[in-house]
């Protein structure tokens, strides 16, 4: 899976900036996408392209349980968020709803990958290739259950009795 990086070099990007509280009443996915990251980066909506990845620091998606957060990012075109760590509800909402891939990366990848870099993520080998800089990093492998839910295409397509 290839895409370009939009980098937010900070920790604790919370759901209130990913999609501010005033939009919680909105359940139209396309409309939510127009407000994605509004609390942090008002230019996000104009610069994001289909297939882009976000790169960020620790505890990405902390705060509320609002599924609006992965929905707004996913419907903006974001296919994966690469972060040093994730807050738990954002992580499971991203996977169970099959909105985007939450990819845990190490400090080297976080520091060396820059805004605009072309990246290739291969979850079968747990490798992240930086095509622009010709470097390869390891991602943290998904746990067994997460890997299975991702392969199935979300919690509703995952059958715990068969898998």
């Amino acid at each position: 899976m290839k895409g370009a990086i939009i980098k937010y070099a900070q920790d604790n990007i919370d759901t209130d900036v990913i999609i501010p509280g005033q939009y919680l009443k909105v359940h139209d996915y396309a409309e939510l996408a127009t407000h994605a990251m509004e609390g942090l980066d008002p230019d996000f909506h104009s610069k994001v392209k289909e297939g882009d990845f976000i790169l960020s620091g620790k505890n990405f998606g902390c705060g509320s349980s609002r599924e609006h957060a992965p929905i707004a990012l996913s419907h903006s075109g974001i296919k994966a968020v690469l972060a040093l760590s994730f807050a738990r509800i954002f992580y499971r909402n991203s996977v169970d709803g099959a909105f985007l891939l939450p990819i845990e990366i190490d400090e080297d990848a976080y520091n060396e990958i820059s805004e605009g870099d072309e990246i290739d993520i291969d979850i079968s080998t747990n490798e992240i290739k930086n095509i622009t800089k010709n470097k390869t990093y390891k991602m943290k492998p998904f746990s067994e259950i997460i890997g299975k839910i991702i392969s199935a295409g979300g919690i509703f397509k995952y059958n715990p009795d068969q898998n």
Partner: peptide, 16 residues
């Protein structure tokens, strides 16, 4: 939990 997980619980009565 988020909306998808709550929907799953409403239909299946369980969650991981």
């Amino acid at each position: 939990l988020g909306h998808t997980d709550i929907a799953y619980v409403l239909l299946h009565g369980k969650i991981w």
